[in-house]
Design a binder for these strands. Sequence first.
DNA 1: GAGTTTTTTTGACAAAAGTCAAAATCGAAA
DNA 2: TTTCGATTTTGACTTTTGTCAAAAAAACTC
Lengths: 187, 187
Amino acid sequence: MLWLLNQISQFAPISPEGQLALASVLVRKEVPKGYVLLEHGKICRHLYMLEKGFARGYYTQDGRDISLWFAFEGDILASYYSFVTLKPSYTTIEILEDSTIAGVSYDQLNELYRNYPEFNLIGRLMTEKYFIELEERTLSFQFQSASERYHQLIEKHPQLLQKASLGHIASFLGISQETLSRIRAKK
Amino acid sequence: MLWLLNQISQFAPISPEGQLALASVLVRKEVPKGYVLLEHGKICRHLYMLEKGFARGYYTQDGRDISLWFAFEGDILASYYSFVTLKPSYTTIEILEDSTIAGVSYDQLNELYRNYPEFNLIGRLMTEKYFIELEERTLSFQFQSASERYHQLIEKHPQLLQKASLGHIASFLGISQETLSRIRAKK
DNA sequence: GAGTTTTTTTGACAAAAGTCAAAATCGAAA
DNA sequence: TTTCGATTTTGACTTTTGTCAAAAAAACTC
């Protein structure tokens, strides 16, 4: 429990009452490798943070799946889109390593927002953070070649090579697995 | 003034006091076509909304500029990245049609956030909205061909063809102008 | 450790997109 | 209207990436 409070209060300090209220609704779970946290087509009703482990989100298109993101420790596990709009998620969330997750349900979070407005500040700052990260990713598609995107990704997350398959990484970069293999081959 | 209050309160109702406070710090400006609202390298210290007119944000790379977004009425004009982090903006914001803009400065907005916490809710909801739009754009790069991206863009914003040059649109789609021209040629 | 399954790499070819240069078209100004 | 300048299109060619199939390598199971 403490861990998540700690993570969140890095965005903005939380009052003791807020901390208590959050702690009382927090859910903490151990989930095994292969577990599907959110299924395509279902509504995302929980906002989890990955305390320990590894996961990814992906779309399915014409039978093949395309990675949207990888989650490391401290990252959010949710379909923002579905969680915010309460519409069915396009994303499937798959646990890739035995993990510990902690989070709150949609209803509970909105209770928190209502009763402890300070959480709106945190919510805003976290959303801003993820917005900026996503912006960077969008720009990488617009500006960089596949090879540049790959090398930059590996530089930022060297662990990724141990944790995810090349197929997962290739689809994340928006290229075929063969192209990624060739990028890796040269130099 | 009323217009902007109206727009914003679509995200969440604002108390009369909040409305007054916002109104008292709002800036409203007429800016001519060609005006540069934010220069690359400068810190974005204002959050404007486009009341009327048309604008775009772009990066410059190797002498050529690449459109990041187009802004229609009701859209935000700012470099989120720079505004949130107070680091120099990579984006340049250019007014493409005589426009009316309305907004607040960084300091004033943070005063509002501090004195009227309800604005954090609005800030969060607006950021969420833009996050989801950006997510869609990112996916389009990962999933769709240039041709699909083009047709979808035009379907969503038919006015764009009247307002922006093909060069601007091509760079927004992440392709060369010649490729866009050829996409348009076939059917 | 042999055999099976999955992942990764390689080869051959096709399709998509980029580049450079020139031509055609469009629009505003004289 | 004519002209100048910018935008858009077209042509020829190159580079990048995709696809399908097969081979090689790695990981897993018994």
